[in-house]
Structures are given as C-alpha cells and as structure tokens.
Simulated assay, not measured.
Amino acid sequence: MPDELIVWERVRQGDPDSFGAIFLLHRDRVYGQALRLTGSSHDAEDVAALVFLEAWRRRSSVRVVDGSVVAWLLICTNFVAKNASRSKRRHAIAMSKLPPQLDQADHADDVLARFEASGRESRLRDAFARLSASDQDVLTLCVVHDFSLADAALALGTPLGTVKSRLSRAKRKLATLTGSTDWDIPAHTIGGTR
C-alpha cells in the first residue's frame, strides 16, 4: 500500500476505495480493541462498524499521527465502546422496570377445533377460493388480519369508500356461500388461499 498519509488525503477528498484500503489496514486492530473493551464478539463488531462509520463521516477532521490514522481510530473505539456500554446499561435498567409479561392462552386452537368439528373449515376455505381476488384481498386485510379500513385502503390503493363497500359485499358473498355469519375466522384457514 502507498504511504498511508497519501491514501488518507484521498479519503478526505471522498474516495471510497482509499477508505476501503484504510479499513483493511486497521480493521483488525480496531476490532481487537473493541473486543477487549466489550468482551463480546457481537458487540465488538458493532463498535468497529461504528468507528469506521464515524471515521468516514468525520474524515476531514481525523488527526493523522506519525503518518497514520490508527491512533484516532483506537481513541474513537474507546469512545464508541463506552457509549455502547452506557446504552446497554440504560436499556437493561429500563427493561427491568417493566412489569413481567404474563403468558396468555392462545384461543386459536379452540377456534380451529370448533371449525373442524362442524366441517365449516373446509366450507369456508372452498367459499373463500370462489371469491374474486379483490374480495379475498379485502377480507384478508380487514377480517383475517384486522387492518383498519383506512390502512386497507392504503394497502389496496383504493378509496376508503370502495374498501367499505367491497368488505360489506365480500362478507355477504361469504355468508351466502357458507351459510354462516360468524366472522371468527382463523387466519390459516383462508389467509394463504388465492
């Protein structure tokens, strides 16, 4: 590699290839320092990535010492590692203050069992497959996945009024085809059919 000072001058002018050369030259030292400070290879990789991102971002003000930027990179590594450690501690403290999450029973198996016992699952799947693509889409979004009408309109690229009328029409068609008005439909029953 040519003189590092010459390469860094090209980096200051925005040359990404020269920056790549600097990265290859100093990545192991930066990573090693980050690993010593964090004790975790995953965290060390994050710290090293942030150091080189900061070096690129601040390339016009990076100090060159004895023809090399390695000293600046190592000092930056110390700084970034301290910030990462503080962030990790604050996150752990914040998470410890949250109430524990309670397990909640999943009612999907009960609903599925009721559908299977009555034979409605296969009738519903068959009826859904007979609907038009636009009816399937509006039912998938609004009934199966519980999107708001406004969000469904955005996703479908249609006016809100059109979504309302399509949903109403699709529910009526589905009710006619299945002989049911119970809209407690398990997502796996109709979600993937087209």
Rank of each mutant, 00 (worst) to 15 (best):
H145A: 13
L25D: 05
R166N: 09
V70G: 07
E9D: 15
H42N: 11
L124N: 12
L154S: 05
C76L: 13
E45C: 01
A34N: 07
Q13G: 08
F115V: 02
G67C: 13
A117F: 04
I185D: 01
T38N: 14
S41E: 15
V138C: 13
G32T: 02
Q33R: 11
M1E: 12
D103E: 12
R166V: 06
D146E: 12
L124A: 08
A127P: 02
D110I: 01
F19I: 03
D151G: 00
C76M: 12
D137G: 01
I75D: 13
D184Q: 02
S68M: 14
S165H: 03
S96C: 06
S122W: 08
A92R: 14
K171P: 06
S40L: 08
G14N: 09
L154N: 10
T38K: 11
R89V: 12
Q101L: 07
A71I: 09
S134H: 10
A187S: 11
L98N: 05
H42I: 07
A55E: 01
F19R: 06
S132N: 03
L74R: 03
E116G: 06
A92Q: 12
D106C: 10
F115R: 01
A21V: 09
L156A: 08
V80N: 03
C142K: 00
D106L: 00
I6V: 14
C76R: 11
D151F: 04
L139N: 13
K97F: 07
Y31C: 03
W72K: 11
R57H: 14
S18T: 06
D135I: 01
Q13M: 08
N78H: 14
H91K: 12
N78A: 13
L74K: 03
G20E: 15
V11T: 00
A92D: 14
D151R: 03
K173L: 04
V64W: 09
